[in-house]
């Protein structure tokens, strides 16, 4: 599904990613952990096609396409979803209007008929119930005046609606209390299937207790320094990233 080979990238001329290799197959859940400034969010943003990041080497192959050549909206319609670390506010644009537009753009891209208001509402209600979201949130402007937790729920709501092939979550767990974390995890887990892959970026093992990964990677100073199963996350939680310094010393 996703093959990243020797990916190098700069931000403002500064090299952040220094040769990332990562393979994600359909149905797999990968977690990327690592200290601040290691390049985790950069990787997520490059996959989604955000401006301001320059790929200087390597390749990203997504289902047979060279990802860097695709516009962000095409990537989105082709199934790449990024749950953002800091969801942006868009004043005056109602959440429900935005969600319906997004869903229908993706459906159109796949040659499916657009959902009308009634059908969309039915699906929306169902997903919101799963995430225990307050009804009024869908009528408010996008993320405007939402609490941190509400914003993150709104991200996962969009993920549930858009049914991506590759869901990337950029520190979705940050700033969430334990109840919210559980609810959101429930939503994410409901999406897990043999065709759908996940890439979770997080600082903490906490999230991985609820959404169990198949693989854990440690990103440090722009490269993946260690990969393993979910037990790696537990080890990191206990020992911290101190081993990185030792590894370098060797």
């Amino acid at each position: 599904m996703l093959e990243i080979k020797d990916l190098k990238a700069t931000v403002d001329g500064k090299e952040i990613l220094k040769g990332i290799n990562l393979n994600i197959k359909p149905g797999e859940v990968h977690a990327i952990m690592g200290p601040n400034g290691s390049g985790k969010s950069t990787l997520a943003n490059i996959l989604a096609g955000r401006n301001g990041y320059e790929v200087t080497g390597g390749s990203i192959n997504y289902n047979g396409h060279a990802l860097v050549d695709m516009e962000p909206e095409i990537r989105a319609r082709e199934g790449i979803f990024l749950a953002m670390q800091y969801p942006i506010e868009i004043p005056g644009v109602s959440n429900i209007y935005f969600l319906k537009n997004a869903v229908n753009e993706v459906r159109k891209h796949h040659g499916e008929s657009e959902l009308d208001a009634m059908d969309f509402m039915k699906i929306l209600k169902e997903k919101m119930k799963l995430l225990e979201m307050k009804n009024e949130l869908i009528y408010r402007a996008i993320n405007e005046g939402f609490s941190g937790g509400e914003k993150k729920r709104n991200e996962i709501l969009q993920m549930l609606l858009l049914q991506p092939k590759l869901a990337i979550m950029d520190e979705t767990d940050s700033g969430l209390d334990i109840d919210a974390l559980q609810t959101i995890s429930k939503g994410v887990n409901s999406l897990r299937s043999a065709e759908r892959s996940f890439l979770m970026i997080t600082h903490y093992q906490r999230l991985l207790n609820y959404i169990q990964p198949d693989f854990v990677h440690v990103l440090a100073r722009g490269t993946i320094v260690k990969s393993g199963g979910k037990e790696l996350a537990a080890q990191l939680e206990q020992e911290g990233y101190a081993f990185l310094d030792n590894a370098e010393a060797i």
Binding site: A48, G49, P72, A76, I88, N101, E105
Partner: peptide, 9 residues
């Protein structure tokens, strides 16, 4: 970017 990431041109 937020809008485009959700599939809008």
């Amino acid at each position: 970017f937020y809008c485009r990431q959700r599939g809008l041109s």
